[in-house]
Nucleic acid binder design. Structure first.
Lengths: 356, 356
DNA sequence: ATGAAAGCGCTAACAT
DNA sequence: ATGTTAGCGCTTTCAT
């Protein structure tokens, strides 16, 4: 019940605490004999160093914080897993900070992060939390942004570039004969919301199509806003909908179902972010996919570089379209949707994120 | 950049560090005058206590660990959110430990937990990690089990009782005319895998139906095993399938789709665990639902009780059937599945977990 | 009510 | 190569 300290190990091994510390940390030279003695004593005692004592002295805690807007969002859950696994590979434990879509909770977690003296922070920023983010920077805690960036804040980021995927999506819809293509946007306060909207506008413009207000419904990345946005757009007579994230895609799906609309026939729908379940929805959903695993992995690498005093450059990773059955250009889709999907799935694993 | 310490606050306020500490912790008596002076100085300095120094001295860290098998599993993601939010309400930060379905990673995290001297552990145990779990207990770290329990380990748990939901599920299938009802089980090494299987057997027996080997496919709570299990069961001529978790339900769904089977007509399917997206699958899925939010909340309450030295009793929370369209007893379901669902959704919010 | 001082477990100088 | 020791920032006696 009493936890052995480094003193106990020293006593048992007949070495001094200094030597014990040195062998345990692999620092400096130690004789093989004392190494053995220390390791044996530590093993027998079941000694585990007290992380707090170590942090207090050495000023690094062996932990990073991951601050996400909403862990229930499958995109962030997946990202959390990638980050946490990559961090553990570097010997770092991850403090999960889930803002739960609440700026106040975001602030509370920033305070936790600062008290806990974490070695680094991987954050999906929300712009309402500008103040709190500044505090982290002022504290000098190394930080990287994941998925989103905040203009005016000098923090390296790894985000995806919506352009290629969105251009393909709009192209897909256009070649299926649509011209009134509505969009359910994310919040304009987030870089992802803005950029997905802008690339959609650009893609439309590239085909000579302007954007009028009738074509855009403002959402907030939550399912409910997707459902409402779809309803709005449908009432305005759009023939195709592009939803800016997975939760809003689900909302749009729900609205179409509720209205008895056949997606891919009566109305076309393309989502943003892929989820395993989107191959099983009615119908399987065509989506713009982003490379989550790579965002997470490179994010952690970047954070480690920052922790090492480097100034890594921000990176943008490309998105791409995954063509399934929610666009009418696939006439057979309604009849044998899953056969087609099942066949395609045996091919290469895009971004390595599909389940085995 | 240099972080102010309690000494800086003491100097600035003209008080001693002892008084500053007392004011900051609200412990013992302090005069109103010194209170003001200290608080003002702390505010001006932007002082935040160093959590490590505090932990080292006072032997409690203000953190708990949450050890989950796989954060990508939506069930655990939701549970993580509930636990983390409840913990924060008590001023506790949550260390996310994602075993990633890997016993070795589970062990590594247990070591992290022990070094970090967390105040408590909320764990979804995996039986292969018996040894690691024992270490936590030996260390005297307060712990509770969530979702699963491990026979022979004396740790209070909050789990759901599959019986009512599974009995309803089997009853539902039986009254739809089935007799060859197959099950895709979870691993028998987990209490949830075992109990869901046992309650299924009991429900079948209650109706005079025995279980032969042909009716059971062994799964491991992962999607792939659900897909394979469904294939196996289908080949053996079952007419209905019960899948023991949400990922395996998705796998079963996938297999049925790939074979061109119409669920709710050619084959009936009931899953375990509800997910928002299951209202949108083809068809909407009938499931046994468990009260995740309550499991998480009561788990944290129980952990706090343990941390306070109490010996709380384990609790079991009931499951229940959510009847959607994947059983043939709903002849209209195939035609207007979502209309029906949409209507029902406007009713009471079961377990408060459906999105608004 | 407050100050002085010990000490939590550890690492890193500084000795030797 | 190893021992000795100061001190990281804080809480908590023990005095006063």
């Amino acid at each position: 019940m009493h936890k052995p300290t480094i003193k106990d190990v020293a006593a048992r091994s007949g070495m001094s605490v200094g030597t014990v510390s040195r062998v345990l940390n692999g620092s400096q030279a130690t004789s093989e004999a004392s190494r053995q003695a220390v390791l044996e004593a530590a093993g027998e005692l079941g000694y585990l160093p007290n992380a707090h004592a170590r942090s207090l002295r050495s000023d690094h805690s062996g932990t990073i914080a991951l601050l996400v807007p909403d862990i229930r969002n499958p995109f962030f859950a997946e990202l959390a897993r990638v980050v946490e696994t990559a961090a553990l590979d570097y010997g770092l434990a991850t403090l999960l900070c889930n803002a739960d879509e609440d700026a106040a909770q975001f602030d509370r977690y920033v305070e936790v992060i600062r008290r806990q003296r974490v070695d680094g922070v991987a954050m999906i920023p929300i712009s309402e939390a500008h103040r709190a983010i500044d505090r982290v920077i002022d504290d000098g805690i190394p930080m990287v942004f994941l998925d989103r960036h905040v203009p005016g804040i000098e923090v390296p980021s790894v985000v995806s570039d919506p352009e290629p995927g969105v251009a393909q999506a709009v192209g897909r819809l256009l070649s299926a004969g649509h011209s009134r293509i509505g969009i359910i946007t994310g919040p304009m306060s987030s870089s992802t919301g803005r950029e997905r909207f802008q690339t959609y506008c650009a893609a439309m413009a590239a085909h000579g199509l302007g954007i009028d207000d009738q074509l855009v419904a403002n959402g907030d990345f939550q399912e409910e806003s997707g459902a409402q946005g779809a309803a709005l757009l449908l009432d305005r007579g759009v023939t195709a909908i592009f939803a800016s994230d997975s939760l809003m895609s689900m909302g749009a799906l729900r609205t179409c179902h509720a209205r008895g609309l056949r997606i891919g026939a009566d109305i076309d729908l393309i989502g943003f972010d892929d989820l395993p379940v989107f191959t099983l929805t009615d119908p399987p959903l065509t989506v713009v996919d982003q490379p989550i695993a790579e965002i997470g992995r490179r994010g952690v690498d970047m954070l480690l570089a920052r922790m090492g005093g480097e100034q890594p450059d921000s990176v943008r990773l490309p998105t791409r379209l995954i063509d399934r059955s929610s666009t009418r250009g696939m006439p057979d889709a309604r009849r044998q949707p899953h056969q087609a999907e099942a066949t395609r799935r045996t091919g290469s694993q895009p971004h390595g994120k599909e389940r085995p």
